Amino acid sequence: MPRLALLLTTVIWGATFPATKAALEQIPPLSFLLLRFLIGTLLVLLWFVICRHRLHHDRAVLEASALTTVFLFLGYLLQTVGLRQTSASNSAFLTALYVIFVPMILMRIDRRVVSATAIAMVGLWLLVKPDTSMNLGDLMTLGCAVAFAGHIICLERFARKVDAPSLFVWQMVAMTVLFLPAPWWEEATRSAFSPTAVLLVALGVTGVFATLAFAVQIWAQRLVPAQQVALLFASEPAYAAWLSWYFLGETLDMQGWIGSALILLAVMIGAFGG
């Protein structure tokens, strides 16, 4: 059940790609992230009030939240800034390298994981078709993959030791605070925040549904090993490609379909097989 829940949440992560891409025609990226996490934080706090769940703020929870937020913030920051200097295909491929980094960092390498990871990497290469040249944007995106790997590893460790809902809400609050200077730094105009249909839909997908997906991830990581979580999340580019093809009319050739099929095969082998 937790693995299936993670796989379904990955569909939401994939949906954030076309939604965000459409919204970024109107609003700068970091300002959009501020709105996304602000909405998510308000919703989570509302849930705490309605359910009367106690918000823990002991030292263990705050330290765990601080460490996980560092990795989460660096992941989003490096990915967003790096995307300005590299192609979307390179960004998608390099970000997904956390599939490799997680088991390497944890030293959890077995035959099935290695086979599934290799299949996933081939599928990702066929799907996103990255070029082989490297620039500063690529290096920043590589750093983002390491940061997201660190976040997945931290969640596996801390979600089992401290109150998971409190760990979740403190991360959301911290991300909102860290992105507060974004409109000033990006010199965003008032029109960028106009409540257009595109922006509202994008914030609904990222601020509401992606927040729910994040909550499910924290719950599931109390039960699923980090290397399997990373492999499950490798299906995100496949979902993003399919949804962009369907909703945005982006092309997806036979090589892309084969690549996305290989990614899902790798997920079945590595996360559900055995």
Results as ranks from 00 to 15, higher is better:
residue 215 A to P: 06
residue 228 Q to C: 05
residue 211 T to H: 01
residue 216 V to L: 12
residue 252 L to S: 03
residue 234 A to N: 15
residue 255 Q to I: 09
residue 225 P to F: 08
residue 229 V to E: 00
residue 215 A to G: 15
residue 241 A to R: 01
residue 242 W to E: 09
residue 211 T to M: 11
residue 258 I to Q: 05
residue 220 A to L: 08
residue 249 G to E: 03
residue 249 G to T: 04
residue 242 W to Q: 11
residue 230 A to Q: 03
residue 226 A to Q: 05
residue 226 A to H: 05
residue 212 L to V: 14
residue 234 A to D: 14
residue 214 F to N: 14
residue 229 V to H: 01
residue 244 S to G: 06
residue 231 L to Q: 03
residue 249 G to M: 03
residue 229 V to I: 04
residue 259 G to Y: 07
residue 210 A to N: 06
residue 232 L to T: 08
residue 250 E to L: 06
residue 240 A to D: 01
residue 215 A to R: 09
residue 234 A to G: 14
residue 244 S to F: 04
residue 223 L to R: 15
residue 232 L to H: 05
residue 243 L to V: 01
residue 255 Q to T: 11
residue 220 A to M: 07
residue 258 I to V: 15
residue 231 L to M: 12
residue 228 Q to L: 13
residue 246 Y to I: 13
residue 220 A to V: 11
residue 236 E to D: 09
residue 236 E to K: 07
residue 250 E to Y: 06
residue 210 A to D: 01
residue 233 F to K: 03
residue 235 S to K: 07
residue 251 T to L: 11
residue 239 Y to C: 02
residue 246 Y to F: 14
residue 242 W to F: 14
residue 215 A to I: 13
residue 216 V to A: 11
residue 247 F to Y: 10
residue 258 I to C: 11
residue 234 A to M: 13
residue 222 R to E: 09
residue 221 Q to V: 11
residue 212 L to S: 09
residue 214 F to T: 13
